[in-house]
Amino acid sequence: MSNLYNVSASPHTRSRVTTTSIMQDVAIALIPASIFGIFNFGINALLIILTSIVTSVLTEYVYEKAMKKPLTTGDYSAVVTGLLLALNLSASVPLWIPVVGSIFAILVVKMLYGGIGQNFMNPALAARCFLLISFAGRMNNFQISAITNNDSAPNFLQYLNKGVIAIDGVSGATPLAAIRAGESVDLMNLFIGRTAGTIGETSVAAILIGAAYLLLKKVITWRIPVMYLASFSVFLMLFGGKGLDPNFLIGHLFGGGLMLGAFFMATDYSTSPITAKGHIVYGIILGIMTGLFRLFGASPEGVSFAIIFCNLLVPLVEKVTLPNMFGKEAKANE
């Protein structure tokens, strides 16, 4: 009897990967884009990031305290939501914008639907879309990069004359607005991040560094981002009217929030399919929807609306792509 083993309750195989470790990895991966955003746009970017993160954490804490629920602020999910929201905002917005957006993201999109894992769309992107609809003027006022060289000033003056940018002296045309206006863009500036845009979307290099970290840590897989970018590229070549024009194609890939969305928001565990086939189908739909919004929509951007729209399609994608079970159900008389 002394050789008997004690068997604990299932599961018997446990992973060291937890919600906290995943959220910490995502936060670490967003550090390069955050640092560049602060360097690019100055102290305003830092204040917006801090305000958004603090408001997100406080909102979750207050709600769970008021509802007498277990506290989950230590899992870093609220931190990631606040950081992602901030990186999707212009550095020129007033500080009450990230406050309103963070409260909406945590309270309305996340907590009222049951907390982490129960939300049906990405909280940060849902909040950004809410802010875009509610405060369009402030949300579309993009600050010119603080490190933009003087040689590019004539281009911004041209957009000012065309009415593409605001006249407050600190905002500028985004690369996507330039492309839509029929202009070419400097691809190296796009890659480095010397352009107008939101705090975290301008530097493709910084975003790819963070994406590489997530891939190496196996927090995300290649399927969703690669299929997203590939299907979007094919859509542009077929319907963009420019064929294989590299400036047009790469400008769309590097411009706006596509890279940030593809690697950091489309891959959100709660709002993306769980199967490998589902990842591929989901990525293809994302690319098509983003292409539709960008080429035929009123705004030159479209990533945020495309992702939250496709979040709603995830149950259908999973239903279609779930693998068949082995065997069959036995009849009652067998």
Rank of each mutant, 00 (worst) to 15 (best):
L236G: 01
V109C: 03
L83I: 06
A276G: 13
D75P: 07
L46C: 08
F191G: 11
G172P: 03
P70L: 07
L238T: 06
N324H: 15
R16P: 10
P315I: 00
I224V: 05
G256L: 07
L46P: 05
E334H: 11
L87Y: 09
S21N: 08
V314R: 10
Q24W: 13
P70N: 08
I165K: 04
Y113A: 12
I53F: 02
T221W: 08
A276R: 15
L84N: 06
Y159T: 13
K217Q: 15
V317K: 00
H12L: 15
S299P: 04
L95G: 11
N149L: 07
L238Q: 09
V234N: 02
S8K: 13
L244C: 03
L258A: 08
D168L: 10
P225T: 05
S21E: 00
G283P: 05
A332Y: 13
Y5E: 13
F309S: 15
A206D: 10
I165L: 12
T19C: 09
G193I: 10
L292I: 15
T20C: 12
L46G: 11
V93C: 06
S2D: 15
P32H: 11
T18Q: 06
G278I: 03
A330N: 13
M1A: 12
G257W: 02
N119Y: 07
V93I: 12
N88Q: 07
A181E: 13
V17Y: 03
M111K: 13
A332N: 14
P300Y: 11
A177Q: 15
V303G: 06
L187S: 02
V204F: 14
S233L: 08
G42D: 01
P175S: 11
L107G: 07
N44S: 13
F263C: 00
P175T: 07
L83D: 08
G117E: 06
L50E: 04
I167Y: 14
M289Q: 14
L244E: 04
G169W: 09
S56K: 03
N311D: 00
K217E: 12
N149H: 13
V7N: 11
Q118M: 12
L4N: 12
A78Q: 04
L71S: 15
V108Q: 03
I224H: 01
T290S: 12
T275A: 05
A306Q: 09
G283Y: 01
E329V: 14
L112T: 11
N150D: 15
L160A: 15
T202Y: 10
L260Q: 09
S299C: 09
Y282H: 09
T290P: 00
L322Q: 14
T271P: 01
L50D: 02
R128I: 00
I250T: 02
M111T: 00
R294H: 02
C310Q: 07
